[in-house]
């Protein structure tokens, strides 16, 4: 009984993904499910469309730079939160993690209002600033998780043996937090690449990221090229994301 219920729920949960992937291979000029025929022409349409390729490159560059910023500031903050004792720690960690839960529609509007005044609206730098805000909490959480796995006595030992702060960080701390750091960076990259709401407020004509292209094209019409783009994204994220996610959960549960 429970098995039947769960099967139905899983089908519901996976239905849109299955549909999107299946329609990417169908021959009809609009996405129909179940697909008719078999073709790869929609993938070719995606890769031979210069606008779409440019958007993919823009999204990749934006996510890369944002991830770099987020990993830097997030790792430093995580170190302070786990390894140092100070007042207001609870308040500060709540503030630093708050962008995870904060409604993006409100943040998007706030950034539009503020960035228009200081000339950051419709700029690449403005998008990096916004995306970094959104993904830093994920870096903090994952780095904190890997820091908490090991207590600070190893670092203390290194310091006692005369190693300087920077040397201790690069030789001891960094290898310890590397898995958390890489996982945080990966999830940050994925979230930034897929981000749509805040980007809609801040993107200008020359800054059409891939999610914006998908959004504006499906708003008024339906085209299997979008299924092909989506399938590429789904495949990439699952190949990279699932193993890291599983490994992290295993670490936390052990």
């Amino acid at each position: 009984m429970l098995r039947v219920v769960n099967t139905v729920i899983l089908i519901y949960l996976l239905a849109p993904i299955i549909v999107v992937v299946a329609t990417a291979f169908g021959t009809s000029p609009y996405p129909v499910f179940p697909p008719v025929g078999l073709t790869l022409k929609w993938f070719d349409r995606f890769l031979s469309n210069p606008d779409l390729v440019r958007s993919t490159e823009l999204s990749a560059a934006l996510s890369f730079v944002s991830t770099l910023c987020a990993t830097t500031i997030g790792t430093l903050a995580a170190l302070a939160l786990v390894r140092h004792r100070f007042r207001a720690k609870v308040v500060i960690s709540a503030l630093l993690l708050s962008p995870i839960l904060f409604p993006t529609i409100v943040l998007g509007l706030a950034l539009l209002v503020a960035f228009t005044r200081i000339g950051l609206a419709q700029t690449f730098a403005g998008l990096v600033a916004a995306h970094t805000v959104l993904i830093t909490p994920f870096v903090i959480r994952l780095v904190m998780a890997s820091l908490a796995d090991l207590d600070g006595s190893i670092e203390e030992a290194a310091r006692n043996l005369g190693s300087g702060r920077l040397r201790t960080f690069f030789l001891i701390t960094l290898p310890i937090i590397r898995p958390g750091l890489l996982a945080g960076a990966l999830f940050g990259f994925i979230i930034s690449f897929d981000e749509l709401v805040v980007t809609l407020f801040l993107a200008g004509p020359g800054l059409q990221t891939l999610p914006i292209r998908i959004f504006s094209s499906i708003e008024y019409s339906s085209d299997p090229t979008i299924s092909a783009i989506s399938s590429c994204l789904i495949a990439t994220w699952i190949i990279f994301g699932v193993p890291v996610y599983m490994r992290f959960l295993a670490v936390q549960r052990a």
């Binding site: 903050a77 786990v82 390894r83 140092h84 004792r85 630093l96 600033a129 805000v133 207590d151």
Partner: peptide, 24 residues
């Protein structure tokens, strides 16, 4: 995670927090 672990250093390390806090 916030629970004190051995090797916890005293004092507010604002230098580590400053970049993230400034960004936010």
């Amino acid at each position: 995670l916030l629970k004190e672990a051995p090797g916890t250093e005293r004092g507010p390390h604002w230098l580590l927090l400053a970049p993230n806090l400034a960004w936010l």
